[in-house]
Design a protein around this nucleic acid. Structure first.
Length: 264
DNA sequence: CCGGTCCTTCAACCGCCTGT
DNA sequence: ACAGGCGGTTGAAGGACCGG
């Protein structure tokens, strides 16, 4: 199913579920769906896209993780499909009509997120070599397409709020001032106060983790009232966006993925 | 077009069973 | 014995699809 999803081919989850029910003699549809949600959680942790609609649930057993990674490392077509999907040049975005159609509330992760304990004997986890989500995050054409999309949203938003003069002053600072500022777009609230927008774009589901620079985290923390992170997701098929206001330290769980190492 | 049926998505909570 | 990891049920809501 993941292969189909990554290649943009249609498939039926229900049909797949039914076949599994036969194979697993009598396990319920719900149980099988749960397991697919567990698989999503593993995929995300491994830096791999997950199937939209199977919202990740972190209460999976170690064995599942091992099996998923093993399965994936042997499945060249799916890995190739992921590779293609994350590297693809972003095409023209689908047209949209109303802001309400694309603006959604941020998804909520299940409260007990991930493992909150340490195992007595750490399980030697196999790893996928490549983090495909990180790779997608470096896809410049996707990033730029996302930024243009948000420029449009902002323009529309201010226009609809009756602040046309402000709409004209929106600045795509990532273009005009470079990308070191910690945000991409300088926009406004209808009352004229500044709104600093960082855009993160993915073609995958809403729960896909994104990568933030130290600068972005710092700016969000220093100017929480102005800062907004716009998370664009399902960008290729059915673009939607949710907004995280304020400090990323508050709204996200931040995992360090890179360290600066100075000799001790 | 209408009503029925199937598909998709997601939330919330419980208790069995296993390792220590 | 006991903690808690792990597997699972139920059902709601909305969308897609289909035959009449």
């Amino acid at each position: 199913m993941l292969g189909h999803e990554l290649r943009g081919e249609p498939f039926s989850k229900r049909e797949h579920n039914r076949r599994l029910q036969e194979l697993l003699n009598g396990r319920s549809a719900g149980a099988i769906e749960f397991k697919h949600q567990n698989i999503s959680a593993v995929l995300i942790e491994e830096g791999f896209p997950y199937i939209d609609g199977y919202k990740p649930r972190a209460n999976y057993q170690d064995r599942l993780r091992t099996e998923v990674i093993l399965r994936l490392s042997m499945d060249a077509p799916v890995v190739a499909a992921a590779e293609t999907a994350v590297m693809a040049v972003a095409s023209v975005t689908t047209p949209w009509r109303d802001l309400e159609d694309i603006l959604v509330p941020p998804p909520v992760r299940e409260p007990r997120a991930g493992r909150t304990y340490e195992r007595a004997v750490p399980v030697p986890a196999p790893r996928l070599g490549i983090n495909y989500l990180e790779r997608e995050a470096r896809n410049a054409s996707l990033g730029e397409a996302g930024e243009r999309f948000v420029l449009e949203i902002e323009h529309r938003r201010l226009w609809e709020a009756g602040a046309k003069h402000l709409a004209e002053r929106i600045e795509h600072v990532a273009k005009t001032k470079g990308d070191g500022l910690g945000y991409d777009i300088a926009s406004f609230d209808p009352d004229g106060s500044e709104r600093l927008i960082e855009v993160k774009t993915t073609t995958f589901g809403a729960m896909t983790p994104f990568f933030a620079t130290a600068r972005e985290v710092a700016v969000s923390n220093d100017q929480p009232h102005q800062y907004r992170l716009y998370r664009l997701f399902k960008f290729r098929t059915e673009p939607k966006v949710f907004v995280l206001p304020g400090s990323l330290r508050q709204s996200c769980v931040l995992d360090p993925v890179q360290f600066r190492a100075t000799l001790a």
